[in-house]
Nucleic acid binder design. Structure first.
Lengths: 365, 365
DNA sequence: TTGAAAGCGCTAACAA
DNA sequence: TTGTTAGCGCTTTCAA
């Protein structure tokens, strides 16, 4: 076990060359599959490599070629099935093109994201895919580009950066969902997101750091406004990072005098917590409260009632981001390109008329 | 934009040294934070680095030090929330110790896993965490160790390899779950897994490639046997890789004359498909069929009825694997170590007496 | 504390 | 087609 466990000095091209009695460069050519080598010599070299159990050193290779065949991915929360699925799309696509993936999970923390970007430059990745945590603090993303590395934003765009983006057209679907609630007679509609606000409480026009959440909010507010609802932003809630917080917010909303008659959850993690809390409170969906959520995973059709959702083509977004990045890396793309995938409001059974709809005043000043 | 977009030659230690009017080695010492440098000189060097926008080249550094501060992770399916959560545990732990993570997603394909192991050696990762796809074909894992890289197996152990393992004690929980079904009067109990069989159909004693699935099967079969059930393996089903296949298998099982009165799903992905199919078939849980699944995500408590599950400490498994690997990398561990985390059968409401239990014959030959 | 020089393992340029 | 010689950007001797 001593020999097989101890780390021995790696076998190098020079060792193989010596064994095969050729020059180092010749061995390197045979091993690396570049340049011209006679069949005869190639054979000798490969046999020698086999005998010595040679494994190329990718670091040394990358130093010379300037390419690492690696792409870096920075996401907020790999535990969120949304990113898990997008990651599979990226991963599948990268592999098919011969790239490896380095993953950095930031917990939506900007400082961690900045650090990850720095490390990716150090590691000399060929390109980076980021779901950015901030809409405006994007210096590190610009640095990434300045370092010559292609950059593709996933799921979220940012302010003032001329860069490739692959995202979902979420606003229209959010609008459709909220409009459906309004049409059903709801006038007190809550929205719960994990996004941290820069300053609380939220006020109309405040900048939200995640554009895909901003899209949700814009769509919802527009629908409520068009429905003649005053202070449509009154029941928007943010900062539900942990499951506990989402549950607490839900409880708090419902404890108020003018609590919501409908809740929209910003993603599937939030949704689970909200539903769990509703159940704990003994509230039925949709009899006591209507519910809509973003993301369409299979469990949403399994619960009673099946949840009306906004479905997003998550895997495809991951694939498109990876494809775009690789095209850039390989010089097959030019000009910043924004790709938007459609989202869809899927009407199931978690929405009904608000409780006591008949007695509801027309406007709640 | 030309200057900011074109990839310029990277600024190197030599450039910084020149700017600061010191020797290359001195600049390197100040920049790398090693060796002895006077405060005065360090200051000059750092200012020069700042001015020139210097970014260290991690590849060059790794070539010299032999360390990359990177750990490689190989899993079967990052989309599976089990691995997503374990990955977060690994990722959080790695970051806290200053390591980055390279992820390889194999789709449970052994050839892809072998290739991933090769690439990780090329990239000179400091250590590897693998959820191996095969119980016996582990040559590539042994090669990993022979290359001097610590290796930790996640969720699954393999045959004949003296290596660190972090897994879940799944057998006892599987036994408890199956026993509960038997005690409730069930005698035709099905189990559905995504694992590919080496040869079909499954026969007692066949080697299963994933030890954590083997543990499930062992526990279940033991409980059925002790319950006096003949051919307890008759209703085990494998190879449900895609959601469609899991649904087809479910349909097929239930169409048979002697179909199951209870189904156990091997993971949460399978579970969603099975439940969806049951619903499509108009079967109620638990009135028409009892159901138990592995993994305890929040949605399992939200559906009607809440699902009885086998809960596993997934995040903790990821954390433990990363900790063990890092301890090895840093020479703080010795002797192969197997860590087993307990799983727990959580009794909820998806199990009842089998339909028509009174008329059920005692044994179904 | 600083500097000069060698070397990590590979690719690339140039000659032969 | 092969060999020789320089690097890539850093760390690490060894002297001064």
């Amino acid at each position: 076990m001593s020999e097989s466990t101890r780390r021995r000095r790696d076998v190098t091209v020079a060792d193989v060359a010596r064994e095969a009695r050729v020059a180092k460069a010749t061995a390197a050519r045979a091993l690396g599959g570049y340049g011209a080598v006679s069949d005869d010599v190639r054979e000798r070299v490969l046999v020698a490599a086999e005998n010595l159990d040679y494994h190329p050193n990718g670091l040394a290779r990358s130093m010379n070629t300037g390419r690492s065949n690696t792409i870096g991915v920075i996401v907020g929360d790999i535990e969120n099935p949304y990113f898990g699925l997008a990651m599979r799309g990226i991963s599948d696509t990268a592999r098919a093109s011969g790239y490896d993936v380095i993953l950095s999970n930031t917990g939506e923390n900007l400082d961690v994201e900045i650090e990850a970007a720095r490390v990716f430059v150090e590691k000399r990745v060929d390109g980076v895919i980021v779901a950015p945590a901030s809409f405006t603090r994007t210096q590190h993303l610009d640095n990434l580009r300045k370092s010559g590395r292609p950059l593709v934003l996933l799921d979220r765009h940012v302010d003032n950066l001329d860069v490739d983006v692959v995202e979902v057209e979420i606003r229209a679907a959010a609008y459709a969902a909220a409009q459906h609630l309004v049409d059903s007679g709801h006038r007190r509609i809550a929205f719960i997101s994990s996004l941290e606000l820069r300053s609380t409480p939220y006020r109309r026009g405040d900048v939200l750091d995640v554009s895909s959440v901003a899209g949700r909010v814009d769509g919802i507010l527009q629908a409520l406004e068009e429905g003649g609802i005053e202070h449509p932003e009154a029941l928007l809630r943010f900062g539900a990072q942990q499951g506990d917080e989402a549950r607490a917010i839900t409880r708090e909303l419902l404890a108020a005098d003018e609590g919501p008659t409908a809740i929209i959850a910003s993603d599937s993690l939030i949704a689970m917590s909200v539903l769990a809390e509703l159940r704990a409170l003994g509230l039925r969906v949709p009899e006591d409260i209507s519910f809509i959520m973003f993301d369409d995973f299979e469990w949403t059709t399994l619960i009673s009632p099946p949840v009306s959702v906004i479905s997003q083509p998550v895997y495809e977004v991951g694939v498109a981001a990876a494809k775009q990045l690789i095209a850039r890396i390989e010089g097959r793309a030019s000009g910043a390109r924004i790709q938007r995938f459609p989202a869809e409001f899927i009407h199931r059974e978690s929405v009904s008329l608000p409780r006591g709809a008949a007695m509801e005043p027309l406007s709640a000043t």
